[in-house]
Design a binder for these strands. Structure first.
Lengths: 191, 191
DNA sequence: CAGCTTTGTGCAACTAGTTGCACAAGCGTG
DNA sequence: CACGCTTGTGCAACTAGTTGCACAAAGCTG
């Protein structure tokens, strides 16, 4: 239940049309919350129906015609309520870790190449984040809002750093692992 | 599309009934892939229908009667195929980061308490993982399977470490932040 | 001005995960 | 033996996200 709140945040930062929102999601918000344009349009409809946002009055509203939205007071209230409300962190769910665990049972054949690719993707993402950090958070810029946003970006940077390092570690393990081929029997118990 | 493969892995490690699987998920697999018993039963049905697993022949199959499953060769093949297949890492999606970004716009009121709670939850999870590490991976135990499983646990440990530290950092920022109350206007642009 | 690309909005169908509940068998206890 | 608790299996309805596609207007290009 977070997409509507992501949209409210983005619209408060700047009123936008659906496509503009989509682009801003791709470019900045996707670092911690990704969404497709279909999801965004659907959600804009719902938010408008609930009276949390409204379309800026413009010429004639028609299909294929731009519609800009802005947040209404009720929307801001809802966002503030949601931000302050207690929420449980949801458990990790990571396919790569699962694949590694599976590899312990059926063998590591073929896995290494893809892990290497992941390592590069994470390294590239990290580089992108570091550029953004340099550009958007120069030494002087440290108002309250900047500090909070910087904190969020920092999480992204540190997570990508973690994954690159962890994958390096994993790959180096692979290097001196006997090349299991899928016939290995489970030896030890588990938990 | 990973739950079936998580189940195949678990069943290869040890043939089990639905409830046993559920418990093993809670206790060990949930560290990187959580699932409810309803999901597991549904998936067991599908896997059986597809011929990847089968119920061990037992007394009379009836409702409320235990059914143990084991993986068939086709199931092992499918798991090996899936493990080796290339998959894109999916983008981060984290509610806490979103809340912080929202707080930059509507104010941080009420957020601190919950972040403090998160910090404790992550610290506790970390402690649990460290116990498991001590118990299951003593210095001697380093066969190929152990190394891979240890690697997975290590990811869990390092991620929990990261979150505890990051939350500490966030909370210390909060300490010398003017106590915004939700009326703060957005000052800077974004991207 | 015909045809192509870009900008913009949106529906429909599907997949995966969550929530709530039902039902059966077995076991222990007053 | 009636009652409640535990073990065990499972359906139904819902929510959130993904995928594929349709359609309209505006601008550009030969």
């Amino acid at each position: 239940m977070s997409l509507p709140h992501a949209i409210l945040t983005a619209l408060l930062e700047k009123p936008s049309s659906g496509l503009e929102l989509t682009r801003r999601f791709d470019k900045s918000i996707a670092y911690f919350w990704s969404a497709t344009h279909q999801q965004i349009y659907r959600e804009l409809g719902r938010l408008e129906a609930e009276g949390l946002i409204r379309a800026l009055p413009s010429e004639q509203p028609a299909r294929g015609q731009k519609r800009e939205y802005e947040v209404l007071p009720a929307g801001r209230d809802e966002l503030a309520r949601w931000t302050a409300a207690s929420q449980d962190p949801k458990p990790l769910r990571d396919v790569t870790l699962l694949r590694l665990r599976a590899a312990a049972v059926v063998g590591t054949a073929g896995l290494e190449t893809d892990l290497r690719r992941h390592r590069e993707l994470h390294a590239r993402q990290l580089a992108t984040y570091l550029e953004i950090e340099q550009r958007d958070f120069p030494p002087g810029k440290d108002g309250p809002q900047d500090r909070l946003r910087h904190l969020v970006l920092r999480a992204g940077i540190d997570l990508e750093t973690f994954w690159t390092q962890w994958l390096d570690h994993a790959l180096s393990e692979f290097a001196h692992l006997p090349d299991t081929d899928g016939t290995g029997r489970p030896g030890a118990g588990e938990d």
